[in-house]
Computed example of a mutant assay.
Amino acid sequence: MVGDDTHLTEEASAGSVGAPVPSRAVPTPVPSLLVIRHGQSLWNALARWQGMADIDLSDLGKEQARIAAAQLAEGPHEFRRVYASKLARARDTASIIADHLRLDTPTTDERWNEADAGPWQGLTPREIKEQWPGFLERNRRPDGFEPYDTVVQRSLEATTELLGSMEPDQPTIVVTHSGVIRSLRRHLTGASERAPNLGGLWLHLVRGRVRPGHDFDPLSAAEVREFSEGPGQVN
């Protein structure tokens, strides 16, 4: 399902933390970002943790990006810009979307990069369980894995900076990674669901603060998820 925050207003969202509140009263549009995850990568297909490894999109990932781009083009929003992390899987997803929407070449920012997975980079969940028994089950991370607080700090800084530079009628797309979206979602709502490929959420700037909006999942009804999810990996 594709969430639609077209009518989100300051009145509707000023007090919201967590689930978005339907708009009411006189509309006062706010700056809005659609933050989404890249398409399936070659390592997603193998269920390998990627972290900062610069892994390309798979053919399925490119098709996922094209499907999402078509839905965005048909939707109610007139997007103005596309941003991405500096990693190829996000950058190439953003380029496919920008081309379809006839927008400028995406701007990259390393603050949107995936969390550094440290010694888990390149490993499968099975290999991690063998070498770090109980870590995945207890949601623990090894030394060398980028801390949650650091991921939140840099991605929230990028979010706030970008939203602060936008007008309310200039919705913008950011293509980033599962770990970044999950960290932002957890920080803003307390929930920590992983975003599927091309899934994500809307973020809004309301009275100087970043607020969460609706989820976005353009592939929920499409037959393009096969092998796109590896259990427990950072993407």
Rank of each mutant, 00 (worst) to 15 (best):
A98L: 04
L123S: 12
S85K: 00
A68E: 02
A115F: 10
T124I: 13
K86C: 15
K86Q: 13
R80C: 08
P133F: 11
A88I: 13
R91N: 08
N113Q: 04
E114N: 02
D116A: 14
S95C: 04
I128W: 14
T108E: 14
P125A: 12
R91S: 12
T105D: 11
K62C: 10
H77N: 08
I67P: 02
D104E: 13
E74Y: 00
K86M: 03
D104T: 12
E74C: 01
Q71W: 01
R126P: 00
I128V: 15
R66N: 06
T105Y: 02
P76V: 02
E63K: 12
A70E: 12
D116P: 05
E74N: 08
K62L: 13
P106L: 06
L123I: 10
E63M: 08
A73G: 09
S95R: 14
R80K: 15
R102H: 10
N113C: 05
S85G: 14
E78Y: 00
Q71S: 10
W112E: 13
E130D: 15
P106Q: 07
A90M: 00
L72G: 01
S85Y: 00
G118L: 08
I96S: 07
A68R: 00
P106G: 06
R102C: 08
R111I: 11
A98Q: 04
A117S: 13
E110N: 10
A94G: 05
E110W: 08
L123H: 12
L101H: 04
R126C: 07
K86S: 15
A69T: 01
T124M: 07
R102S: 13
I128A: 06
L123T: 13
K129I: 07
I67N: 05
A117W: 03
Q64R: 00
A88L: 09
A98I: 03
Q121C: 13
Q121H: 09
D109C: 07
T108C: 10
A84K: 02
R102T: 04
G75W: 06
R81K: 11
R111L: 11
L103R: 09
E114K: 04
Y83D: 00
T93L: 05
R80I: 03
L123F: 13
T105V: 09
P125K: 14
Q64F: 09
K62E: 15
Q71P: 01
Q121L: 04
Q131S: 15
E74P: 01
K86P: 04
L72Q: 06
Q121D: 11
A90N: 03
H77P: 01
A73E: 11
P106E: 09
Q71T: 05
A115R: 15
A65P: 03
Y83Q: 04
R111E: 07
P125H: 14
H77I: 02
Q131C: 04
G122T: 12
D99G: 06
Q64T: 11
D104L: 07
T108G: 09
D99E: 13
K129M: 14
R80Q: 12
K129C: 11
P125Q: 13
E63S: 05
W120S: 06
R81V: 00
D104P: 02
G118S: 07
Y83C: 03
R81D: 10
A115H: 06
A69N: 00
W112I: 12
G75C: 05
A70L: 03
A73F: 01
R80F: 01
K86T: 15
G134F: 06
A88W: 07
L87D: 06
E110T: 03
L101I: 09
P106F: 03
W132I: 08
G122P: 05
